[in-house]
């Protein structure tokens, strides 16, 4: 049953775009198409395709992959840490915190090593992006 979620998501997306196009955008005429025409066409196409996929999948369900919540959480944690701390502290501290967040779920990875990795990654970021490529990033805020 779970494997139906995929086609259902697609169905939802297709319907969503098609309905939003009708509700908020002008379809125009064939002579001068409005902004809503193309999204409506493609949204309808996706709805149809997703419906066919769903029917087929009901007959012969395609296997699905089991999720790994811990891995997802770790990656989310790492990216969120970076996005959250960059404006507050600058890119390099954010990089350190991001590495610590991502690696926190790995048990066989000892804490001292996590710090070593975190600071090496920050150093690498500075070396490549700021010193090497000269991209104007705030390395450490307030410095």
């Amino acid at each position: 049953m779970t494997s139906q979620i995929g086609p259902l998501l697609m169905l939802g997306a297709g319907l969503g775009f098609a309905i939003a196009a009708v509700a908020t955008l002008d379809p125009g005429s064939a002579r001068r198409m409005g902004p809503g025409a193309f999204p409506l066409l493609v949204g309808a196409a996706l709805t149809l395709l997703a419906a066919i996929t769903l029917v087929r999948n009901l007959r012969a369900p395609m296997d699905w992959h089991r999720p790994d919540p811990l891995a997802v959480l770790a990656v989310l944690g790492g990216a969120v840490a970076f996005a959250f701390f960059t404006p507050l502290l600058g890119v390099l501290p954010a990089a350190v915190l991001s590495v610590l967040a991502t690696s926190s779920v790995v048990r066989e990875f000892r804490w001292p090593w996590k710090f070593v990795l975190a600071f090496s990654v920050a150093a690498g970021v500075w070396l490549v992006f700021i010193a090497g490529l000269g991209i104007p990033l705030t390395a450490i805020r307030g410095l």
Partner: peptide, 11 residues
Amino acid sequence: SATVIALGLGL
């Protein structure tokens, strides 16, 4: 000069 800027920005 790029390096100088990078330092300058920080200091």
